[in-house]
C-alpha cells in the first residue's frame, strides 16, 4: 500500500518538530492578523480621507485664479483639469496603488522580495523566541504575510464601510459629529459587524497561507514535513499529519468566529 502505518511511526519520531511547527504557525498567523488589520485600517483611512492638497486651486478667491475656479456663468466647475486636480488625493492614490499591486502579484513572490530584497539590508537579531523560533526568519514572514493580508483586509473593511447606508453619516454629521467621530462611533462598529464573516475567512486564509513561509526557512508545520521528507524520503504520511493539523486549526477557528457573529447580531433582532 502507498500509505503505510509503519511510516507514521517514523513520522512520530519527528513529533517535536511538528509540535514546534504548530506553535510557529499559530503565532505567525496571530501576529500577521494583528499587523495586517492595523495596516488595513491605516489603508482604509488613507483611501477614505479627504486630504486634497490641491483643493485651494478650486477655492482661491475669484479674480486671482477665478478663471480656473468658475466657468463663464459664475458656477463652480464640476469638470475639467483644475477640478480633477483639486479632487486629487495623494494618500488615497498611494493606498489604492498599494492594494492593487499586492493583490495582483503572487504571495510567494512578495515573500521572496521581502526576505531576499528588503531584509537583506536590515540586520535582524538572530535570537530564538521560546528557544526554537528563529526570529530573523519569523519576522520577515510576519511582515510579508501581513503586508499581503493588509491589502485584502483593506478591501474587506472598505466594502463594509461602503455597505453602511449614507443616511447614517448624514445623521451623525448633522448632529455635529466630526468626520472622525462619525467613523469611530457610527460607521466602523456597524461595518465591522457586517464584515465579520469575511474577516474570519481572511484569518483562516492566513493560517493556510502561512505554509508558504517555509520557503524562507520559517520552521512551521510545512517545514517539519520537508524535514521528514529530506531525512527519510517519506512524503505522504507527514503530509497527512500536516493536513490534520491545519484542519484542526482552521475548522474550529471559523466555528468560534461564527459563534461571536451570532452574539453580535443580537441587537438586530426582536
Amino acid at each position: 500500500m502507498f500509505i503505510q502505518m509503519k511510516n507514521f511511526s517514523v513520522v512520530a519520531s519527528y513529533a517535536q518538530m511538528f509540535q514546534e511547527g504548530l506553535v510557529v504557525t499559530i503565532l505567525l498567523s496571530l501576529f500577521t492578523v494583528v499587523f495586517g488589520f492595523v495596516l488595513a485600517l491605516a489603508l482604509v483611512l488613507m483611501r477614505m480621507s479627504s486630504f486634497r492638497p490641491f483643493l485651494w486651486l478650486a477655492h482661491v478667491s475669484p479674480g486671482v485664479f477665478g478663471f480656473f475656479e468658475r466657468d463663464g456663468s459664475g458656477m463652480k466647475r464640476d469638470s475639467g483639469f483644475v477640478y480633477h486636480l483639486g479632487r486629487f488625493n495623494p494618500l488615497s492614490f498611494l493606498a489604492t496603488a498599494y492594494v492593487e499591486i499586492l493583490r495582483s502579484t503572487p504571495v510567494l513572490v512578495q515573500i521572496m522580495i521581502i526576505y531576499f530584497g528588503v531584509f537583506q539590508f536590515i540586520d535582524l537579531p538572530s535570537f530564538k523566541l521560546f528557544g526554537f523560533i528563529r526570529f530573523n526568519r519569523f519576522f520577515p514572514g510576519v511582515v510579508a504575510l501581513g503586508m499581503n493580508s493588509g491589502a485584502y483586509l483593506c478591501e474587506i473593511i472598505r466594502s463594509g464601510v461602503q455597505s453602511i447606508d449614507g443616511g447614517q453619516s448624514e445623521a451623525a454629521r448633522s448632529l455635529g459629529l466630526r468626520q472622525s467621530q462619525n467613523f469611530q462611533y457610527i460607521i466602523l462598529p456597524q461595518a465591522l459587524k457586517n464584515i465579520l464573516p469575511a474577516i474570519a475567512n481572511e484569518f483562516v486564509v492566513i493560517i493556510k497561507e502561512s505554509a508558504i513561509t517555509y520557503t524562507i526557512g520559517v520552521q512551521d508545520i510545512m517545514a517539519a514535513v520537508q524535514a521528514v521528507k529530506g531525512a527519510t524520503s517519506i512524503i505522504m504520511e507527514p503530509l497527512l499529519v500536516a493536513t490534520a493539523l491545519y484542519f484542526c486549526l482552521c475548522f474550529p477557528t471559523s466555528k468560534i468566529i461564527a459563534y461571536f457573529e451570532r452574539r453580535m447580531s443580537r441587537g438586530d433582532k426582536r
Binding site: E170, A171, L177, K193, G267
Partner: peptide, 30 residues
C-alpha cells in the same frame, strides 16, 4: 450643524445603539 437639528425621511437612527445611546452620543461627544 450642532445648532441645526435635522430629521430625515428614513429616521436614520443608529441601529447598533440603544435609544438612550442614540440620544446621548452627540451631547456627550460633541
Amino acid at each position: 450643524r450642532q445648532k441645526m437639528g435635522m430629521v430625515f425621511q428614513h429616521f436614520n437612527l443608529f441601529p447598533h445603539m440603544t435609544i438612550l445611546d442614540n440620544m446621548t452620543l452627540a451631547p456627550i461627544k460633541v
